[in-house]
Design a protein around this nucleic acid. Sequence first.
DNA 1: TAAAAATACTCCATAGGTATTTTAT
DNA 2: ATAAAATACCTATGGAGTATTTTTA
Lengths: 88, 88
Amino acid sequence: MELEQLRLFLAVAEARSFSGAARELFVSHSTTSRAVSALERELGKPLLLRRGRTVSLNPAGEVLQREARKILDQAEELKQAVKSSVEC
Amino acid sequence: MELEQLRLFLAVAEARSFSGAARELFVSHSTTSRAVSALERELGKPLLLRRGRTVSLNPAGEVLQREARKILDQAEELKQAVKSSVEC
DNA sequence: TAAAAATACTCCATAGGTATTTTAT
DNA sequence: ATAAAATACCTATGGAGTATTTTTA
């Protein structure tokens, strides 16, 4: 599990669309599709429900969305904290 | 910034050694060296002080060590939470 | 039939190992 | 002289795009 996968998953979860998220991020839709598949494989269960053209979150996806957001926010804060730490 | 880089950085920070951490993780020492270099490049400042055979943390490194630990722990919790979420 | 997701195929970037060089003790 | 870190070099893996197939609304 890598941060980039979480970034892509979140974009898909928020857009409720693989291709929509791909457009927003300027990547191909196969990139969003594979990132989510890889997460599902690693975590051992589906995260999103694909019903025709509709993408929705199942319980595991809801958990991931909530927590992934926190982790990515923290990672961003961390970057800023390091950047503004004293030189040495 | 990716979780794998944080894992490698933490191992180096804790071992106070690039090669020691590499041995623990069963990777080559060039892997630990480059992971830390990449982080330093991305974050815009040195994280570790290399003085001869001694590796120590500077303030930025201290911040990163503390926060990276939290993020990795959270990522681990997240995995467990998803794995134990209800099927759907 | 149109729009989106999955996937096969391909290519290229880069992650990682080995070997070498540099540095400090 | 030795041990560790940096780095040049090379290779293989996997990430990402394109094109195609599948699905369903």
